[in-house]
Design a binder for these strands. Structure first.
Length: 810
DNA sequence: AGGCAAATACTG
DNA sequence: CAGTAT
DNA sequence: GCCT
């Protein structure tokens, strides 16, 4: 097994941009794996792909050699001239195809249009069943001195600051005992008059970035300044701001509150939120800590950052963008990137305007999106999908040569799935209505447990669908909002290990009462009350309450590939409300090139595609890839990505026999690797493939090109479409290349649903391993001070499919 | 009160 | 480095 | 927002 094959790479693989890649010897691995014996070897991991890092990384073992076998037999040291190439390929060309891969800018009249954002819903009167505690809209029923903020304080800059503050307080009072109760007003006055005299010894760790700000702070209690409040007031003063003891809208520039809406208004001496001048932002304490955490940057930058994050720390949803209006002056609009578009673009543009429903109401559109996307549009040109897997394109070559990859692999995740299901006490179907594409080479008969059949039925017949719909809707709103609280709130609905939505999907009977709902493991008091309300009224008022204009707009904007919460809110505060606003440069917003593409193909990208279309596209790609190198292992992976949590009931009639139900895919993930037993690798295939696919009209736009195309491990993201099909839509597509040995881990990693992955990692972690797309690693040592820091990358790698079943983790 | 997935890569 | 994506 |  230690044989070294010193033959040049096949010409096929030899095409560095510069023309030739030095040939180099490569050892072959074989044998060991056939015995399924655990193989332990030194790390083969490449160093992190840090551009800055790469050059000098791994002196001896040129990562080029990630060629596993090399390292595995420990003979790399003898291999001459290792370092050479690959490094330099870094300078590779970004554009793969002869023709420009970048699209010619967007700027089209009316494509998707966010027509009208529904009027802001009016807040509910009383709090009945509705739980009004939402974050930016933080209606904490009672004004608990935000422990959240407190926590942040403690953890960031802050330990110091805190201590300091304490001394300050005592000093100010001239005694060490507990200060006697004072009102916030009194305390602020005190600070003002006495200042921080005395404690100047220690300079503040944070720069006084609040200089020039006039801040009014309230912890929510007007009558008693808690320790927290006092501390914070001290900090505010230290940060250089002018602390106002009472609210004067002529003077105050920022309101910082941890109190409820009511308490805050009281402290301000106002009646309604609307009474607060629009130019005064009302934020939570976390906004201050954000600044403290960034005190290293120049005052100007920090100022901007603080402005940009006002919404992120807004205390009340109605005032999320207060004070931001001026940030991005609605400057010169119509800054048309009149780059102009070419004909091709125009033709595509015209056709994605149709479905405007989805635009004005993304959610709704969803349902019919799926319903309509029946495969009818897919002409017969395509190699007939699914049924009889179109000719085993995967080449006999591959399958015969790679006997070992058969069972171990397939069986592995088969087992993993089942094990997980048992583990969790429920059958885990892929988290959305997708199924992992079958591994063609070895269909497994016994995968009954988690096939989509089961799930289809469950979904179609779910007796609590209306509840799920409402909860999902609410979740989507939380998801679009900024801030941690909403994040976790949304997470709790469907992403956690045990969650209401997940549980409901599997609940066999119609829920009728609060108690019944409550009895479900993942359903807590809050959710149970919501369910009860839905049962009684058929509606959930909290939804209307959360669905404020900003959230709706944010939802729409975040639908653009490349736009997340921060950007969405930034644009919102710049005055953008619709996709057209973006196109028109309202507020002077600028889109990145990726965002331009995301905008141009907004509808396409957000739409799921029928599984058959994914297969059709893959079936076009595979032969092209194999023509570049017949020994490639190319495989489509199941995917479930971003916009996939749709819990839509579908007409069963759509369940076409050979399409495996109504299953659809959010994107196409293609894994490429190559057996190394003949001494060659897939290096170099990717760029050629990309070019070929561009030429074939399959790939249309690039979203992200790997830094190093000539890497054993690279990821490409882009858009593709069925060529020669009139008006075929753009679909998201990713190509992943991985070292041969990592294919198992990669397949697992990318095909598993979220729950599955989490469980795997959980187990791996518990056992002191780390699982990522590259493999299973042992010996990860983390900095005890900061779990995020890895001190030691781990010396060993166990390649999972070299393990005997009994040694596999799951 | 604290955790909830973690790791990695690309863009600007 | 922040933001986004997977 | 749920669980421990």
């Amino acid at each position: 097994m230690d044989q070294h094959i010193s033959e040049p790479l096949s010409p096929i693989l030899d095409f560095s941009p510069q023309g030739k890649r030095p040939s180099r010897p490569i050892t072959v691995e074989q044998g060991p794996q056939l015995q399924l014996v655990p193989v332990v070897h030194t790390a083969i991991d490449k160093p992190p792909k840090k551009k800055s890092f790469r050059p000098q990384a791994i002196p001896q073992i040129g990562q080029a050699f990630a060629s596993e076998s090399l390292i595995e037999d420990g003979s790399f040291s003898e291999i001459p001239g290792l370092k050479t190439d690959v490094q330099k390929t870094k300078t590779k060309t970004r554009a793969v195809s002869s023709e420009p891969m970048r699209p010619k800018t967007v700027k089209l009249g009316k494509a998707g249009t966010v027509s009208d954002v529904p009027e802001t819903a009016s807040p509910v009167g009383e709090s009945s069943v509705i739980d009004l505690s939402s974050s930016p809209s933080s209606r904490e029923g009672t004004p608990p001195p935000a422990k959240k903020a407190r926590k942040q304080i403690d953890s960031s800059t802050v330990d110091k600051g805190k201590q300091r503050v304490k001394t300050a307080v005592t000093a100010a009072k001239g005694k060490k005992e507990k200060p006697k109760p004072v009102t916030p007003f009194e305390f602020a006055e005190q600070l003002k008059t006495m200042g921080l005299a005395g404690k100047t010894q220690r300079r503040v760790s944070s720069a006084p970035f609040l200089e020039g700000y006039n801040v009014f702070y309230t912890g929510g209690d007007r009558t008693y300044a808690s320790e927290t409040t006092r501390n914070r007031m001290e900090i505010l003063v230290r940060l250089g701001c002018n602390l106002s003891s009472k609210f004067d809208q002529e003077v105050v520039t920022h309101i910082i509150t941890e109190g409820s809406a009511g308490a805050t208004l009281q402290a301000l001496g106002m009646k309604r939120m609307g009474d607060i001048p629009e130019h005064i932002p009302t934020v939570k304490w976390s906004w201050v800590t954000l600044g403290m955490g960034s005190s290293h940057m120049p005052k100007e930058d920090l100022d901007e950052k603080l402005r940009n994050h006002l919404f992120n720390h807004g205390a009340f949803s109605d005032r999320l963008t207060a004070g931001m209006k001026s940030v991005i002056p609605p400057s010169k609009k119509g800054k048309n990137k009149s780059k102009s578009m070419n004909e091709e673009d125009i033709s595509h543009i015209s056709d994605f305007t149709q479905d405007k429903t989805r635009i004005s109401n993304p959610r709704n559109a969803e349902s019919h999106t799926i319903v309509h996307s029946s495969p009818k549009e897919i002409p017969a040109i395509l190699p007939s999908p699914s049924i009889t897997p179109p000719r085993r394109l995967i080449s006999e070559a591959t399958s015969s040569r790679v006997l070992l990859d058969q069972d171990p692999l397939a069986e592995f995740y088969e087992r993993a799935k089942v094990s997980l299901a048992e583990d969790k006490g429920f059958l885990s179907a892929p988290s959305d209505n997708e199924e992992i594409f079958p591994v063609e080479e070895h269909p497994k008969p016994k995968k009954s447990r988690w096939t989509c059949d089961v799930k289809d039925k469950e979904i179609a017949t779910c007796p609590n669908q209306d509840i799920i719909d409402k909860l999902s809707e609410l979740m989507e709103l939380h998801k679009a909002k900024p801030g941690q609280e909403d994040h976790w709130r949304a997470f709790a609905y469907s992403k956690g290990v045990t969650t209401p939505i997940r549980a409901l999907k599997h609940h066999p009977t119609r829920i009728k009462t609060y108690e019944e709902a409550r009895s479900i493991r993942a359903v807590g008091d809050k959710t149970a009350r919501k369910i009860a309300e839905i049962l009684e009224t058929g509606d959930l008022r909290r939804i209307g309450y959360e669905r404020t204009e900003d959230v709706q707009v944010a939802q729409i904007l975040q639908g653009i590939y490349g736009v997340g919460r921060t950007t969405a809110y930034k644009w919102y505060s710049a005055g953008c409300r619709t996709l057209d606003d973006l196109r028109n440069g309202v507020g002077g917003v600028k889109l990145s090139s990726v965002q331009e593409i995301g905008l141009q193909f907004y509808d396409d990208i957000n739409e799921r595609m029928p599984r058959s279309e994914a297969e059709a596209i893959f079936n076009l790609i595979k032969p092209i890839a194999l023509s570049i190198d017949p020994n490639l292992f190319i495989q489509i992976m199941g995917s479930f990505r971003r916009h996939d949590n749709r819990y839509v009931s579908l007409p069963t009639s759509l369940t076409l026999p050979n399409i495996r139900g109504k299953s659809s895919c959010g994107d196409i993930d293609i894994l490429i690797t190559r057996p190394v037993d003949d001494g060659k690798t897939h290096i170099g295939v990717l760029p050629r493939l990309l070019e070929a696919l561009h030429s074939a009209g399959i790939l249309t736009e690039d979203l992200a090109i790997p830094d190093d195309l000539y890497d054993l491990e690279a990821t490409y993201r882009g858009l593709c479409r069925l060529p020669d099909v009139l008006n075929s839509k753009r679909r998201r597509i990713d190509f992943l290349t991985v070292p041969w040995k990592a294919r198992g881990a990669a397949l697992l990693y990318y095909t598993g649903d979220d729950i599955f992955n989490r469980a795997m990692r959980y187990k791996a972690g518990a056992m002191g391993y780390s699982l990522n797309q590259r493999g299973l690693h042992a010996g990860i040592v983390r900095d005890p001070q900061d779990r995020r820091v890895k001190i030691n990358e781990g010396e060993l790698e166990l390649c999972i499919f070299f393990l005997r079943p009994s040694e596999q983790l799951l």
